[in-house]
Nucleic acid binder design. Structure first.
Length: 502
DNA sequence: AAAAAAG
């Protein structure tokens, strides 16, 4: 393993990282840092969760010098506000021993604080396009002194929705500059387009080109959702032994809002992030999820890219994403930094073509979904979720909720009869802090592993998804079953849930 | 077509 020192990173930065236990460089960092330090333009591509942020962040910081003049000299552009916050935090960590100041410029927030920090002379700006342009137009933000530019999630930043903004931003930045583009996905046409903004870029892939882009440490499970009660099946997955944090993706903001309500009514501890919420709500949801106060995050694609939360063991695609890129980024919220994860996808009747596309593009090797539908749910790939769900994904017969020995105590209330509880009241199941982890990270190289082959997924036993005993979280007792608000089935997930929770 | 991103 290479250290950051060996890659040419200055002692004060190395020390700042070491304070957080970050000592060894990931392959993408090994490959990009020395080159980026020389000012080489770079298109950096590496799998999700393998250290791209520091791949561009450390050389960017170092190239500004240890005591840069006041004024904006480096710009990192990101596609979402939450990622903006996260990247800012990462860069702040790396600069904790030097005076360079970083300011986060994104929408939904008061102007004053951002403007103040700019006036105070911040050298590094991390921002989303809209507010960056806004402040540039107001002449509060000058990009004329920028010499380091990064597009994070670069393929996203260059797609049709963002391209005009990006062009506008680049038009305000001097042509002589150092430019870096990073993403896990870099389609050929986007790379070609990207060259317009770069000079003699080198395309670095920290993966074998013919290896595929899926993380080998993520197991992929795909369900046909036709005639399936998704909420019910998801409830069961959420009760899997060994489940850590879970991100559930929906296609629409409305679906996210509805699902968070449904799951919380069922006694889960979920938060939602999507564009219909105000920024304060979004940030509180993210903070609660990161801190473990909520162990389920329900999100639109706003959280599909870049978001890095420790101990996400499951990603659930409530609705299948649009294409292989979106799939890969969503699934990549788990299996980060060498850990293992599970990605579960539900394929609706109308979305079979999307699954076909993803299956082909990511070389999952699953049978093409051409066979006629029967009324019984069909599983495309093997399962790793609680026994009793396999092959029979209908709601189970109702059964008394399993009150597990590991369930956290409710806050300030005695255990009341579940069924008698008013439907609207929330059960506050405490997420237990201190999930004991103890596992050594799996070989932290996303670069040397083959792509996933879910078809032959074996059954390592619920809870240990690598079969090696890692990832034994024990903080996920089955929530109390709540009376359904809406009519319909009153079936419980109870008897499908693993009974041995302790 | 949806989501994201300025207000």
């Amino acid at each position: 393993m290479t250290t950051f020192t060996e890659l040419g990173i200055a002692p004060d930065i190395v020390e700042a990282l070491a304070g957080k236990g970050i000592v060894d460089a990931f392959p993408i960092q090994e490959q990009t840092i020395p080159l980026a330090l020389t000012g080489q333009d770079i298109i950096g591509q590496a799998k999700t969760g393998t250290g791209k942020t520091f791949g561009f962040g450390l050389p960017l910081i170092q190239r500004l010098g240890d005591d840069p003049e006041p004024g904006v000299q480096a710009l990192v552009v990101v596609p979402t506000r939450e990622l903006c916050v996260q990247v800012t935090e990462d860069l702040e960590l790396a600069t904790s021993n030097r005076p360079a100041k970083i300011v986060s410029i994104y929408g939904g927030k008061a102007y004053e604080g951002q403007i103040e920090q700019l006036k105070a002379g911040a050298q590094i700006v991390v921002g989303t396009p809209g507010r960056l342009i806004d402040l540039a137009n107001q002449r509060v933000l000058s990009l004329a002194g920028v010499r380091e530019v990064v597009l994070d999630e670069a393929d996203k930043m260059l797609d049709l929705g963002f391209l005009p903004d990006i062009e506008k931003i680049f038009s305000k930045i001097p042509a002589v500059r150092h430019t870096m583009l990073f993403s896990a996905t870099m389609p050929g046409p986007i790379v070609a387009l990207a060259r317009r903004f770069m000079s003699k870029p080198i395309h670095i892939r920290a993966t074998d080109p013919d290896e595929g882009l899926t993380q080998a440490n993520i197991k992929h499970l795909v369900y046909r959702a036709h005639s399936l009660d998704k909420d019910e099946v998801i409830s069961r997955i959420l009760q899997a032994e060994g489940r850590g944090k879970t991100v559930i993706f929906t296609r629409t903001k409305r679906a996210a809002a509805k699902l968070v309500e449904e799951l919380n009514d069922r006694g889960f501890n979920a938060a939602a992030v999507h564009g219909d919420l105000n920024q304060d709500q979004r940030e509180r949801a993210m903070a609660a999820f990161k801190a473990g106060k909520k162990d389920i995050l329900i999100a639109t694609d706003v959280a599909a890219r870049g978001i890095d939360v420790d101990d996400v063991t499951h990603v659930i695609n409530h609705t299948i994403p649009d294409d292989d890129k979106a799939y890969l980024h969503r699934a990549g919220r788990t299996g980060r930094a060498g850990k293992t994860g599970i990605a579960v996808t539900f394929v609706d009747w109308d979305d079979l073509h999307k699954w076909a596309l993803i299956n082909r593009a990511l070389e999952f090797g699953q049978p093409e979904p051409t066979e006629t539908y029967s009324s019984s749910p069909h599983l495309y790939s093997d399962l790793d979720i609680p026994e009793g769900t396999k092959g029979r994904l209908k709601p189970a017969a109702s059964a008394p909720p399993t009150r597990s020995a590991t369930a956290g105590r409710r806050e300030g209330e005695a255990a009341a009869d579940d069924a008698s509880r008013p439907a609207r009241s929330r059960s506050r199941r405490r997420t237990r802090g201190g999930r004991s982890e103890g596992e050594a990270a799996v070989e932290a190289s996303g670069a040397t592993e083959g792509s996933a082959a879910p078809a032959e997924a074996k059954e390592p036993g619920a809870g240990t998804h690598d079969g090696k005993g890692r990832e034994h979280h024990d903080g996920n007792a089955a929530p109390r079953r709540r009376r359904r608000r809406r009519g319909g089935r009153s079936g419980g997930a109870g008897n499908a849930a693993p009974t041995a929770q302790a």
